[in-house]
Design a protein around this nucleic acid. Structure first.
Lengths: 162, 162
RNA sequence: UGACACCUGGUACC
DNA sequence: GGTACCAGGTGTCA
């Protein structure tokens, strides 16, 4: 028995790179009939300052957590096939390749500087490892134009918090 | 001997951004007594799809061509002073500033994507260069409210083609 | 140097 | 409410 979960995720950060920025992360869970259920989270306004990158990672975390909760609700303990699509090469490459290098080298980037957003990457990696024990997680990059659902949900979530 | 030509130009695109849009470009040549002679052109319905921006550039081209034809009709080979007013900052800034940057950088915009409508900009630039050998071309931005003559001519031209 | 995002602003066209 | 286009900028990595 295989339980497939397909997500599109996105993050948005109004005023990115400027003081007072506000950010939102969204995961959209797609159902068999082509519709989706969105889940949005507001990023804390500081500590650290929200950025577009943090929002994109945070969106991955929403999906991974969601998959684990869903699994816990299922009685038959199926094999989980979690598929996450993001338009951020930064997060997709981070989660699929770079993170293994960082774990290996003590979290330093190619420029010799400490990797940024390690807190979120480690949270995501821990969740991913949990899922690995009951299935698998795959990430795919899609262009922005194919991520409009999640993009719209982000903007609406931002509008709601103003 | 200086021959001054003053134009107001405008473009309009019904259904801009939607399939089946139709567009028109107009140049109005102003005469010493305050009246003007309009010249309108219909944009081809595809290849590429007409847009408001293409219509605005096309309007510049009408004026530039007109100036060259008029020059060829004059026997005394005067110094041409061609003045074009448009309510599109996009075209005015493109023709006065950005085009030099684009020529320099191989036609990439600030986002690193290829500049759009290069075909029309290059046509306009070639005409402008021809005039530069016999005079000069200056562009000025005017607010929409000061461009009502050309605006009305556009709408009428659109109505004529339906 | 490259890439993908995330914005801020502006004008027009509908 | 939307699209068509541009200029500036940051966030991050290889």
């Amino acid at each position: 028995m295989v339980y497939i979960m397909e997500f599109k995720v996105d993050g948005a950060c109004r005023g990115n790179g400027q003081p007072g920025s506000t950010a939102v992360a969204v995961a959209c869970l797609f159902t068999r009939n082509g519709t989706y259920i969105p889940k949005a989270r507001h990023l804390p306004p500081d500590n650290p300052v929200p950025t577009n990158q943090r929002a994109e990672i945070r969106a991955i975390i929403i999906a991974l957590k969601w998959a684990l909760v869903r699994y816990s609700e299922l009685s038959m303990g199926p094999y989980m096939d979690v598929r996450i699509k993001s338009d951020s090469k930064y997060v997709v490459n981070s989660m699929t390749t770079w993170i293994y290098k960082w774990i290996d080298n003590g979290w330093y980037n190619a420029a010799g500087r400490p990797v940024v957003n390690t807190d979120l990457f480690q949270r995501a990696f821990a969740l991913q490892n949990k899922i690995s024990q009951i299935g698998k997680v795959t990430y795919a990059w899609i262009p922005r134009e194919e991520n409009l659902d999640a993009d719209i949900e982000c903007k609406e979530a931002l509008d709601r918090i103003q």
